[in-house]
């Protein structure tokens, strides 16, 4: 039994979700990681802890609270309705919001580590050459932190692909909108359709191995990668 059109749709949706999530996380996670790496503010501890929360929380907790907060009786749901977006649960946009929260530590922490490893000297050197802070960031920091960006992007993408508990809670299993691969595998297994499940589940094992192999090959010293 080959994978059916439903399975392929789920694969495509998963890739789309992970792609959008990774791009958003790199955009918003970079300034956040930079701030966490450089700040001496008292807020550094609390903000760092909030970013790391999804590492520790069971995904079902995150999904359960998102369902309540983003629902019509929750603060988030009332805001999105007021803003004319409507309600987010059971939509692709809702999954993107959930995935950004869920995968945040996997993007922010490698970036923060990479920024911290650069140290003061290259920044001071750039400043004596009268480079503006923005110029310094793009001409000095980004090239030096390149392995960090790579790790962040790969982990953010892969971790979103592996998301299950959160999607289960706020997804509603809608084809083309919220039925991602992990949910589709769950459906096959629960329906005792093991042959179909093996296609996707085996594919996930191979995908995850290849991703980690790339990661460890590109980062042979593996200081950051070992945090996985």
């Amino acid at each position: 039994m080959a994978p059916g059109p439903d399975d392929l749709a789920a694969v495509w949706l998963t890739v789309k979700l992970a792609g959008v999530t990774t791009v958003l996380l790199l955009l918003f996670g970079t300034p956040l990681a930079w701030w966490l790496a450089r700040t001496r503010s008292r807020l550094k501890g609390p903000v760092g802890a909030v970013v790391a929360l999804p590492l520790v929380l069971p995904p079902t907790v995150l999904g359960f609270y998102l369902l309540l907060v983003l629902g019509p009786n929750g603060a988030g749901g009332q805001f999105t309705q007021w803003a004319g977006i409507g309600l987010l649960p059971f939509t692709f946009a809702g999954l993107v919001v959930a995935s950004v929260l869920y995968s945040m530590p996997f993007v922010v922490q490698p970036l923060q580590n990479a920024f911290e490893a650069i140290g003061e000297q290259p920044l001071e050197a750039a400043a004596t050459l009268r480079a503006s802070p923005l110029d310094t960031f793009f001409s000095v920091v980004v090239p030096l932190a390149r392995p960090g960006f790579l790790t962040a992007a790969i982990l953010g993408f892969a971790h979103t692909v592996g998301e299950f508990g959160v999607v289960l809670m706020i997804g509603g299993n809608i084809p083309g909108a919220t039925r991602v691969v992990s949910v589709q595998i769950y459906n096959h297994v629960e329906a005792l359709d093991y042959a179909q499940a093996h296609w996707l589940a085996g594919g996930m094992v191979i995908f995850s191995f290849v991703v980690l192999l790339i990661l460890y090959t590109l980062n042979p010293t593996g200081r950051k990668a070992r945090r996985v």
Binding site: L67, M169, N173, I174
Partner: peptide, 19 residues
């Protein structure tokens, strides 16, 4: 349709007002 994985989840979708 919003498909729940089981009865408890269907109840959750409704009781939270999302469905």
């Amino acid at each position: 349709f919003v498909l729940a994985e089981n009865l408890a989840q269907a109840y959750q979708f409704i009781v939270s007002g999302n469905a």
